[in-house]
Design a protein around this nucleic acid. Sequence first.
DNA 1: CTGAAAGCGCTAACAA
DNA 2: TTGTTAGCGCTTTCAG
Lengths: 341, 341
Amino acid sequence: MSKQKKTTIKDIANVLNITPSAVSKALNNHPRISQKTRDAVIQVAKNLNYQPNRLASALRKGKSNLVGVIIPRTNSIFFSNVVQHMEEVLNLSGYNVIMTQSNESYTKECTNIEALLDTQVDGIIASLANETTNFESYNKIINNGVPLIMFDRSDYEIDADYIGIDDVRSSQLIVNHLITQGCKRIAHIAGYSHTRIYKNRIKGYIDSLEQHQMEINEELILESNLSLNDGREKMQQLLQLEERPDAVYAAGDYAALGALQILKEHNIKVPEEIAVVGFSNEPFTALTSPSITTINQHSEQIGKLAAKAFIQRMDEQNSDSNVTNIILEPELIIRESSKRI
Amino acid sequence: MSKQKKTTIKDIANVLNITPSAVSKALNNHPRISQKTRDAVIQVAKNLNYQPNRLASALRKGKSNLVGVIIPRTNSIFFSNVVQHMEEVLNLSGYNVIMTQSNESYTKECTNIEALLDTQVDGIIASLANETTNFESYNKIINNGVPLIMFDRSDYEIDADYIGIDDVRSSQLIVNHLITQGCKRIAHIAGYSHTRIYKNRIKGYIDSLEQHQMEINEELILESNLSLNDGREKMQQLLQLEERPDAVYAAGDYAALGALQILKEHNIKVPEEIAVVGFSNEPFTALTSPSITTINQHSEQIGKLAAKAFIQRMDEQNSDSNVTNIILEPELIIRESSKRI
DNA sequence: CTGAAAGCGCTAACAA
DNA sequence: TTGTTAGCGCTTTCAG
């Protein structure tokens, strides 16, 4: 049973004594075919358990109906939600998703791009790996005439559509909130500033402090990879300062959790002595005690909008239209870890 | 720049005044070609920015190097880890992954299977949707001669390779542990018993109680969809019994969390008054207070083994070889929610 | 070692 | 309305 030859439109044509092209038309609801033939074809197709070969069709039409997606990691609820909603929208328009992950590695990212282009995807939707500072392979996608949509992590050097939240604004929301809560010495466990979103978060942090005529203190800004362990280390470092901070804003939830752990281990009261804020609304932030204040990045919307941006690119004829830039308003979710009043 | 024609082996052939077939051989390290030609071809290919067209190659060779993956949900760390490690192994062997999700829906699952078969994937790796009780479409995959590997959720009616953990044993580990902790009335918030893994978890639960000459009480076994909300509801129900349980084993972590929330809301001490155990080792189980005892399902191993099983199927000539069945030993992770002594 | 030629399965001009 | 024909880009016999 396992090696039966697959039935093709040719087989169907033979049975009915018509030509393959007639069968093709019948199967694709082409107008120039009689209802009678169409019905007959569909009947025979069913009988022979016909399975269209999208590869052949793709080759012929020069369109694979495959969309490549590159995300840094799957084990982050943000990215996996984004992909989930992207898929939803894309499937509705007849696209399948090829998902790849870079594991935050630049080389893996390049390999993935190569592989996706080889597979003749109709477009690529991506978010940068942490490591990436060279954007040639992304520009190669564009130069190949393949639509590219970036989300969350991108760079000004990549001339593609972009969907993300306003990171400067996110930081401002957080810092303003902390100031309202009476915090006077706010530390920032930042991401690496070579990445645009983290640079923007640092900028928002600084802007907000300046607006309130508060001092910018270099020793309170620590760049990190935002892992749980890095959060722990940086928090340790902050505790060893002459003058402790009274609030810590980490640019990622895992780092915030690490900080929280250290504070608990040192019996430092959160938020009374030191307030903690994270970023991304990972599910665990609602479940820790105290629960962690964080930013909702709108993964669902980002996924859907990115998919729609791609579909629009495919639909439009004039591929020279301007690049779309959708910046969503972040939402501050205030929880116990920062509520002092 | 965006509409440049893609370079093909024909273009390369023209430049060098040789035939496409020679170029093909050179590019594929075919032995019957001179080193000189090979070098020249590779040089020109680089100059013209040649990108092989895998679709054409796939059509010709009858092999797409695409593997379809069907998972019920992406927002579960178990499934997303599995996919991640699957991808790792598959990429190494030159395969790309097309990821689809059923959202626990039977219809979506069928659509996904159709789409994947149409795309001419070389194989499918899948885990059943909760809803699924009809396995025709899976058997269709097999009948089409496409290798099928199931993991975690499968059924005896699907005659495919399988990788999963020993669910009966998992329940036994849990129930034995609870008994050791002095629990005498152990409730089970179960999954729907039409699904094999949940049936097995129920079986393990019953077996273990019988082994200890403890009573099997129907009112303590509640089937559910294992969502957080269902966990809350079932826990409510259990609290309304004449005689309360002193332990609750939920067949999923989210349900366990729901139960924990209800217990907290009622100021019932965990684990002193009622112990709680979950299943799957979702990251949040380590972070709640009390942290939740649970089962490690070995997502990494499952992903890798499933990928390897597929690769083996592809490599072997005699496709009639027996079905592989890999059952991994579960690991009980004991945390605060069940530690009474 | 290289070339000629056929064809994977499907689609789209064009012709009838 | 249907058929003929050519070809998407690549691989693979088979001849030379």
